[in-house]
Amino acid sequence: MNRRLRVGLYALGGVFALLLAVALIATYVVLQPERFTALLQARARAAGLELTLSSPAHPTLWPSPALELEGLSLRSNVSGTPLIAASRGKLVLPWHTLLGGEATISRLEVEGARIDVDAVSAYLDTLPSRPSTAGATLPTIDAGFRISRGTLLRGTTLLLSNVEAETDRLASGRRFTLTVSANLADETPYALDLDTVPTLSRGVLTLADAKLKLASEKHFEADLKGDATWRGGADVGASLSGRVSREEGKPFDVVLAVTPANQNDPLYVALKLDGETEHADLHIPPLALGEWWNGIHAGGTLTMPPLVGTFDAANVDAGSLHVKGLRIEATPDAPASSTTVGSAP
């Protein structure tokens, strides 16, 4: 390589290094990590929460302007247990922020998040209660978010692991998608996908053209379509229908309808299943069912769940339990009873 070419390459490399240094300095000056950190902390304080970082945020430019966050912790002002603790986070910013534009966030990404259900529940209990006559609300999400390698806990009890969740912007009249996947404590994987158009008008929230998919790999996959409405409180209505396919067993049709609570009856979910060997017509009170489930987990007496209706199945296989000819009947005035024929453990 001749001397002139070598000098030219050195000069070109020096110019590139200088431009890179200038770009990095400009990134810190223009993005001003402290203003975005202050923006997040101000929003948290307005909600009665305290956001801390283990180290100051630092900016990046590729593949888009962003701020890298290390050691996030979000606590309630009345509790020392973090609602959310994450190893890393990223605030993705619009390109106009490089030109000194308004401090806005286009996306939030969190990695290695640990979410404590008890801490979240305790925080929600501190929020002012809404009047029972208040209409529906739709919390706006200006920026989409993503959670990766998350964990859901209740104190020291593991509920979900390997949680992956992602959404885009949530706003009235705009199509919204949500994808969630996670493993139960026994490592059984589940995935949920929701696609709908939420519209809030005069205190009524409508989820139009809703597509809901719930699946567990090598177990089942349910595809439902329909609409739902919420008018505030327990005034919830929905009508969904679709099909459930299974890895072992033939598919069956599903019709699900939610009836709002009134002065005489609680909120009910009507569930109809129609398959080749399974048929069900059940009315389920979700609030009472939740209380029953919590009582069982708390060590209470094992009782039949608070269901009304009938369930028939030629075969039921649940782990080591194998039952043939199962029929369950329940009425509002009599506890649920079951009849089995040729059952075997």
Rank of each mutant, 00 (worst) to 15 (best):
T277H: 02
D186H: 02
P332H: 02
P131D: 15
S132V: 14
A134T: 09
A44I: 14
A228E: 12
E68P: 07
V29I: 08
A86L: 13
S79C: 04
G13R: 08
G101E: 05
T97H: 05
T52I: 03
A215Q: 13
L194I: 14
A344G: 06
A228G: 11
T196H: 04
Y28L: 10
L326Q: 05
T104G: 02
R45C: 00
A257E: 15
K90C: 13
R327H: 11
D235Y: 10
W95I: 07
S216Q: 08
V316K: 03
V341H: 03
E221Y: 04
T133D: 14
F220H: 02
G233R: 10
L170H: 08
L67Q: 10
A298S: 09
S54D: 15
E217R: 13
L307C: 07
L178D: 12
L200W: 06
T331N: 01
P189T: 01
A257Q: 13
T157K: 02
D168H: 10
D333E: 05
N264Q: 14
S239C: 01
E187Y: 03
L93P: 08
V255E: 09
G295D: 04
L282T: 08
P305T: 01
E276F: 06
L91C: 09
L83Q: 11
R327M: 02
V7E: 04
P33V: 14
L67S: 08
S172H: 05
A86E: 13
S73V: 11
L124S: 14
L124I: 12
L153G: 03
E68H: 14
G342A: 08
E109D: 15
E68L: 15
T156K: 09
G144Q: 04
N315L: 12
V244D: 05
R327C: 00
T179F: 05
G290N: 12
G299Q: 02
A210W: 00
T199K: 09
G242Y: 05
A210G: 10
L24Q: 12
P251V: 13
T301H: 00
G226Q: 13
L184M: 07
P33N: 03
F176L: 10
S76L: 11
D223C: 00
G319C: 02
L91D: 11
T104A: 13
V258F: 11
K272P: 01
L108I: 15
A257N: 15
G173Q: 11
E329G: 00
R114T: 13
V269W: 09
A257I: 09
E164A: 08
G299I: 03
L93N: 07
L307S: 04
P59L: 10
N264V: 08
W292C: 02
V323P: 02
L69D: 00
I284E: 02
G300C: 01
T167N: 05
I141H: 15
S64V: 06
N162V: 00
Y28H: 12
E248V: 07
